[in-house]
Amino acid sequence: MNTATYYVAQGFELTKGGRLVAGQAQQAQSASAAIRRAENMAGKGGAIAFSRTGDPASGDFEDARILKTFGLIPEDFV
């Protein structure tokens, strides 16, 4: 098994109706870069930085590991 770790920042915007809507996820080169990117995305609601490790060839990945959250995050992400 050939494993890889992906680092991701995901932002969320708060709509006028009070719902959190996911923005486009952005991949980063490292955990610290994902955290910085998420912090920058958090201005309109919230953001989360996370990592996933697994085998890209087989599609088998471990559960996401939360690195840091900022602002408002949907409950099912935490």
Rank of each mutant, 00 (worst) to 15 (best):
Q26E: 15
G71A: 11
R36Q: 15
G59N: 06
G45W: 12
M1G: 14
G43V: 02
Q27E: 12
P74N: 12
G17E: 15
M41F: 15
E39K: 07
I48T: 08
L20T: 01
F61L: 08
G23F: 03
Q24M: 12
T15K: 06
I73N: 09
S30R: 06
M41V: 03
A25H: 08
R52Y: 02
A57I: 06
L14P: 02
N2C: 01
P56C: 11
R19K: 15
Y7S: 00
A25Q: 13
A34Q: 05
G43L: 04
D76M: 07
T3A: 05
T69C: 03
E75S: 15
G71T: 06
E39I: 00
A9G: 05
A64T: 04
L20I: 00
M41C: 07
N40T: 13
A9V: 14
G17S: 14
E13C: 05
A4E: 11
K44A: 00
S30V: 01
I48W: 01
K16I: 06
A33M: 08
A38E: 02
Q10E: 09
G59R: 09
S58M: 02
D76W: 06
R19A: 13
S30E: 04
Y6H: 12
G46K: 13
V8F: 01
A57V: 13
D76G: 03
R65D: 12
K16A: 14
G18M: 09
F77Y: 15
I66R: 13
G18S: 11
G43M: 04
G59Q: 03
E13F: 06
E62Q: 13
E13D: 10
R65A: 14
Q10D: 01
A34R: 08
A42W: 01
Y6W: 11
A28W: 08
Y7G: 04
A42S: 15
A25K: 14
T5D: 03
I73P: 04
F70Y: 12
I66G: 06
S30H: 07
G71M: 10
A25F: 08
R65V: 15
I35A: 03
E62A: 14
I73M: 10
T69G: 01
L20V: 00
L72W: 04
A47R: 03
G11K: 02
E13T: 03
G23I: 09
I73L: 15
G45F: 12
A28E: 05
F12T: 02
G45T: 11
E13A: 08
T69R: 09
D63M: 10
E39T: 01
A33G: 04
M1C: 11
G17A: 14
A42L: 10
A49D: 04
E75T: 15
G59Y: 06
M41D: 02
A22F: 10
T53P: 02
A25L: 11
G18C: 11
E62G: 00
A33V: 01
G45K: 10
G18V: 07
Q29Y: 01
T5L: 00
A57Q: 13
N2Q: 10
Y6E: 12
A25C: 09
G23Q: 13
E13W: 04
K16N: 14
I35M: 00
A25D: 02
D76P: 01
